[in-house]
């Protein structure tokens, strides 16, 4: 192990090269090639842009794509707003044991499978579900209310799924914020809003970026929540990819969709990092 290029080195280099080569790089090259091929006959393909043209000309495709992008940004923003007061509470207001317990409680639900969490929301939001029953029992509603199968349900489910990935980086970032800075902000005549905007948020920025990137990526790539809580109205882009690949067996079209989704999520990650001048490696390790 002392010599820099011993046998050990080459043996150790083999697994990552195989892993990244065979499971990551080459498969993505494969779908890139596939996405530029057009079917001209049985098992006969040629180079062309037909799949991308179909994406642009078929409203269902590009609308679903745009919808996924816009809703994912909205979900990320809502998740940030919902999580911030809780993260700030855990980092700065809670003390000792209650701090540790509150933090741990945040992590717990996310050890449960995504399917289990979605099942919970279906039971709560269904027409015959618990929320509907509560609304009727308290007289707020005269009859059963269907809260499932709409965008609201999808957003609730996606925000819920993203919370952990927002709270943890936020708590980590806010933990190092010195209380005297906040006090100094007030002493200098700042209002709560001023202090939040000019002291707390800048300090939390690394956590905000890390959390937002991960939440956006998980949301845009989500399948279960949109399909089960949105029903027929769910229309998520991952479902289009699945439909092309598995249901219609139109792999070139599905590959083009996959590449577009990858482009979208990479673009958002890149923009997020550039806007705040953070490195990819440190941000990923932080989350």
């Amino acid at each position: 192990m002392m010599r820099a290029r011993g046998l050990a080195f080459w043996l150790l280099l083999l697994p990552p090269v195989l892993w990244l080569g065979l499971l990551l790089i080459v498969p993505h090259v494969e779908i890139a090639i596939l996405s530029f091929s057009e079917r001209v006959g049985p098992r006969l393909y040629r180079f062309g842009f037909a799949n991308y043209l179909a994406f642009l000309t078929e409203p269902l495709y590009w609308r679903t794509f745009a919808r996924t992008a816009v809703m994912s940004i909205a979900v990320t923003a809502i998740t940030l707003v919902v999580a911030f007061p809780v993260a700030f509470y855990i980092a700065k207001a809670a003390r000792g044991v209650s701090k540790a317990v509150l933090f741990l409680l945040c992590l717990l639900p996310f050890w449960a499978s995504e399917l289990v969490r979605t099942l919970g929301w279906m039971i709560l939001l269904r027409e015959t579900g618990l929320v509907s029953a509560l609304l009727q029992a308290t007289g707020l509603s005269a009859g059963p209310v269907e809260l499932l199968y709409n965008d609201g349900a999808v957003i609730v489910g996606l925000v819920y799924g993203g919370l952990l990935f927002m709270v943890v980086p936020l708590v980590n970032a806010l933990d190092s914020l010195d209380f005297s800075l906040i006090e100094a902000g007030f002493d200098l005549g700042g209002s709560r809003i001023d202090v939040l905007r000019r002291v707390v948020i800048p300090h939390a920025m690394p956590g905000i970026v890390a959390g937002s990137i991960v939440v956006f990526m998980l949301t845009a790539g989500n399948f279960v929540t949109a399909a089960l809580l949105g029903g027929k109205n769910g229309l998520w882009f991952t479902e289009q990819i699945y439909a092309q690949f598995i249901v219609r067996f139109n792999w070139p079209q599905g590959a083009a969709f996959g590449l577009l989704l990858l482009l979208l999520s990479s673009a958002i990650v890149w923009i997020g990092l550039k806007l705040t001048g953070q490195g990819f490696g440190e941000t990923m390790r932080r989350s």
Partner: peptide, 29 residues
Amino acid sequence: FPGKALLANMMLWPLVIPGVILGISILAF
């Protein structure tokens, strides 16, 4: 070794690739 930083960086890529895309690319290949 040369390219170590790149290799370490590449090892993080799977975390930002949606799972469905990992699936279809491996299936196609």
